[in-house]
Structures are given as structure tokens and as C-alpha cells.
Amino acid sequence: MSEKLRERVQQLAAIWGPSGREQRVADALRAMITSYVDEVRSDRFGNLLAVRKGREGGRRVLLSAHMDTPGAIALNVSEKGLIYLAPVGGLKAYHLVGRRVEWGSGATGVLQCEHGDGEVSFKKLFCDIGAASKEEALAKVALGDICTLAGPVEVWGDRLVGPNLDNRLGCAVLLEVAEHLRECPHTVVFAFTSQGEVAPRGAAVAAFGAEPDLALLVDSALSGDQPGVRQVASRLGGGPSLRLKDSGYVAHHGLAERIAAVAEAGAIPLQRAVSPTDSEGRAVVSVGPGVPTAVIDIPVRYQGTGAEMANIRDAHGAADLLLKLLGGSLELG
């Protein structure tokens, strides 16, 4: 397995880049992917698009992963310098008490909750950046600034543990594919998309501009091998997971069959799951005349926390699957 994939996940997960503020992540991805593709550009929505040209007669494939992470936006500051917040994306307040965060300004802080009846909600959650007054806090964090969970991604054998794995894992998989994609008959548009955590707008914009014949989205999804998630079949270490359905999307049958056949032929473990959470699939599938779309997930435990957990072998499996898929025919039945 490539050590570079693990290193890229760790490097990308450390970059501040909440929904709508992804420029630092995009800059890092641009530097990483430029030597593997024929052109790189950004669109007006904030997506980063890198094109690897194929042969005449090949298909045009959108390979997409959202690059933002969830965060919390500064709403108000108390006279004592405590910053009150609202969520940006899928953070849950009860996961956040005691967690360290980073602001876009570079300020760091810790999240805490007001004492009371034990209920934890964003109405009671605040960030303490060590300021002694409202004026001192506002000199470091302006209203409207966004913080994200901070901390390193640690390596526990095959497992990665830390914040922001969703969906910097997917971005790292796209980089792995770009680096190792050799002879490919198809034109591949690598799209690192904006605002995937708040709504799948970035993926829809990217698909509209790319006009693909089909789309393959790489995302992180709730793993079923954790307490209270009995309805999800996937598990860490079982391989990438083909998303059959979620709240707004159903996999294209022909494309799903092609993915399953390639996985079987290449002896790549492939899980299948129905996800209780949304994905960018629903936005891409209905663009223009319609785009045959599949979502390949990397299972992640404890999503939206400072200790997300994934198995690096599942990410490698996703990259291997995509490389074999792109190297062959993509005519769909």
C-alpha cells in the first residue's frame, strides 16, 4: 500500500477549511495534483477542477469528493469574551464539549457548555479562546468567522483516528487515482467540491460545468460497526462501500453493476449499504439531461467528532477500484 495516501490524509485533515471557506484546502490540492493532470482551474463556486484528457471516443467521467469539513460560526461574544456559536454542517453539540478548535484567523480555543440541567445544545455551547473581554475576543475572532475541530490524525495500525477524516479521505483517494492513472481511454474531471457538508451545491455546479457521461463520487459514510447503527451494513476494514440508496439518491443500476463486476474481477472487497445520511449523489444525478451516478463510500466511525475513525485499507481499496474501473470500458447496460 502507498504510504503517500496515509500521509496525504493526515496533511489534508490538518488544514482549516469549513464549508464555504475551502480555499486553503483547494490551494494544497492544486499543488498536489497539478503534475498528474493536463489542466487545473477553479470555478466561481469555489470548486477545484483538474482534467486528465483521454482518447477520442472515450467517456467523460466526473470523479468528485467534497473538500469541506463541518464547523461552527461565531454568532455573538459575551462581555467576558466567550464566543457563542451555531453549527455549519453536521456537528452535534454533545460531541463537542471539551474539544479544541481552530478559527480561520489562527486563534485556537476550547468548546464548553453552560452549567445547568445537563442538556447540551448549541444554545448553551460557547468557545473560550482565553480572552478576558469582548473587545479582546473580537480582535481575534470576528462575528461570522468559522471554527473547525483541531488536532492531529493519529495512526493506530491500519486505522486513522482524528478530526476531519470526512471527507479529506475522499480527497486523498482522488489524488491517489490521479497519480497512478496510466493509460486511460476516458477524460477524467477530478472535482474537489465546496459546501458538501451544508448542501451538495458544489457537486451540482461541478457536474453542470463538466457535462459528464457518468459520475463517481467518493465520500465518507457512517460505519455500521458502532453501537446504535444496526441499520447500516458496512464496517471498518471491509473495503469501500457502494452506496445503494440514501435519503435523496438511488444508485444507477447499470453503473452499480459495472462497479461490482470490476471489484469481483480485481478481488477488491466491496461492501454495499443503504445510508441514513444524505450525499451529493442527489444533486449530481439530476443535472442537465441526467447523469448516471454512483457513490463509493469509505466507512467512518464517530462522524463529526474529534475522533473519527477509518481504516486506511478501505481508502486504498476505493482507489484501486476506481483505477481498474477507469482503465476499462464504461459502456453501461
Score class of each variant (00 low, 15 high):
Leu149Met: 10
Ala150Glu: 12
Ala150Ile: 03
Gly151Arg: 01
Pro152His: 08
Pro152Asn: 12
Val153Cys: 13
Val153Leu: 13
Glu154Ile: 04
Glu154His: 11
Glu154Arg: 14
Val155His: 04
Val155Ala: 15
Val155Trp: 04
Trp156Lys: 08
Trp156Arg: 12
Gly157Lys: 12
Asp158Ala: 03
Asp158Ile: 00
Arg159Met: 05
Val161Ser: 05
Val161Trp: 03
Val161Lys: 07
Val161Ile: 15
Val161His: 04
Gly162Met: 05
Gly162His: 04
Gly162Lys: 05
Pro163Met: 10
Pro163His: 12
Pro163Cys: 14
Asn164Arg: 15
Asn164Cys: 13
Leu165Phe: 12
Leu165Asp: 14
Asp166Pro: 03
Asp166Gly: 05
Asn167Phe: 13
Arg168Ile: 10
Leu169Lys: 06
Leu169Glu: 09
Leu169Trp: 07
Gly170Arg: 04
Gly170Leu: 02
Cys171Leu: 07
Val173Ala: 07
Leu175Met: 06
Leu175Trp: 03
Leu175Cys: 09
Glu176Pro: 12
Val177Trp: 09
Ala178Cys: 08
Ala178Asp: 05
Ala178Lys: 03
Glu179Phe: 14
Glu179Lys: 15
Glu179Cys: 06
His180Ser: 13
His180Arg: 15
Leu181Ser: 00
Arg182Leu: 01
Arg182Tyr: 00
Glu183Arg: 06
Glu183Asn: 10
Glu183Pro: 06
Glu183Thr: 14
Cys184His: 06
Cys184Asn: 13
Pro185Asn: 08
Pro185Leu: 02
His186Asn: 02
His186Ser: 01
Thr187Gly: 04
Val188Glu: 02
Val188Leu: 03
Val188Trp: 02
Val188Ala: 02
